[in-house]
Design a protein around this nucleic acid. Structure first.
Lengths: 225, 225
DNA sequence: ATATATTTGTGTATAAATTACACATAATGA
DNA sequence: TCATTATGTGTAATTTATACACAAATATAT
């Protein structure tokens, strides 16, 4: 064979959320190409592992993060996207809960850091395009799949959910109508626990009931905001 | 290198439509594995071609079809999906207009044929799964993207569109309300041409105005049925 | 040529969903 | 105890979706 084979990699755009900010997990590359530049975590797929396994392995190896939700995003395969040769990358997008924040750098990563999604550094390869695709997907999907809960703590006050949606959708929402709608979807359990952060009336905690959600979905009842 | 490299292929689920029937383009495999069995068209990606080019090339080579609409579907990468070794396949889904029906068999195809989507034969590899994914995507997307027009002739009577949606959505729709809605979307040009097929009042022809659609989309006006 | 069958084309009234909007409650802190 | 801050709740107005029937234009059969 005269030509080198096509290589297959996986990359993951990992979103976090805290205090009204969407953040993205990036690594600083330790090696060429793009040494010292920021990139989304990822790496080559090994011969006998599934794509999902590869993503999870790379994320763990490079950043120490435990992903909460993972879905395939898109496969990027332009011939010149990697200067090392032909590399096709299957991109994933993932969501993590806020207090999974015990990240560390390892293997090809010199540094790992959360970046506010509107203060992103220059990225390596075509990672900017991958990231944009992921943001679009997240914003699009949040209205018809209950992804938001994957970004919040298991138990959360309603205002957290509200703020999250305000952030993700990039526009104000009516507090009363939003609550009415979400409660009407019947996928939240209201707990008998209150939490109070700072001044103001303490808030009741809620919990997403995934089981009920899947039940309703099976019955053809759709989640939509 | 002791292990063989991962190979990359593309496959395409191509949908056609005629007379109230969704059809899928399949080839009968000429070689092992799965020799003599039906499969969706596809093949290995060459070193310097983009994924889209690879799909279009394979489709042309194997079936002679000219695709009208093509989008990436999903990448299938389970380690054991191909008995020849590790093959990861980027699947696409395509739509063709009815009178592009000059198909022929070539290269690895012994035969090419349109199958009614609810009378499909047993398929090779994990192609059943790929096909199901494509059908889901088509049905899901048809309501919020104007894909339907890609399956009709450029000029079509309104009833064609209506029948197409009835078929794709798998349920009856109210003729008057449907027409009201579609006309209200402002993406159809009504032509001064009539067509009459068989008995009944002749129908006016319509044409999808792609330019206007993109204009409206840019203005944030969404297509939804 | 006349009647019958077939398909296209159109409006209105009702129901359902979405939106707009304001004040009481429970806590903190000065 | 008074001011401040965040939570929690209902109703009316508007918009959108649904249900529904008959006239117009042609082909076909008698």
């Amino acid at each position: 064979m005269s030509k080198q084979a096509i290589k297959l990699s996986v990359d993951a755009v990992v979103f976090g959320y805290e205090e009204g900010n969407i953040s993205v997990l990036l690594i600083k590359r330790k090696f060429e190409p793009f040494k010292g530049q920021w990139a989304i975590p990822g790496g080559f797929v090994e011969h006998d592992e599934s794509l999902e396994t590869a993503v999870e392995r790379e994320l763990l190896e490079e950043t120490g993060i435990k992903i909460n939700y993972l879905e395939q995003l898109y496969t990027f395969g332009k011939p010149k996207r990697d200067p090392r040769g032909r590399v096709v990358s299957v991109a994933y997008f993932g969501l993590v809960r806020p207090n999974t924040f015990d990240i560390f750098a390892a293997t090809d990563a010199e540094q790992v850091q959360w970046f506010n999604s509107n203060e992103l550094p220059k990225l390596s390869f075509d990672h900017k395009e991958i990231l944009n695709t992921a943001i679009e997907r997240l914003q699009g999907k949040i209205t018809y799949e209950p992804l938001g809960f994957e970004l919040l703590d298991k138990k959360f006050p309603f205002s957290d959910l509200e703020k999250l949606y305000t952030t993700l959708l990039g526009r104000d929402i009516d507090r009363r109508n939003f609550r009415k709608k979400i409660i009407g979807l019947n996928v939240l359990d209201e707990l008998n626990e209150k939490v109070s952060k700072g001044s103001g009336r303490p808030a009741n905690l809620f919990q997403f009931n995934k089981k009920r959600y899947f039940q309703l979905k099976k019955e053809g009842i759709i989640f939509e905001i």
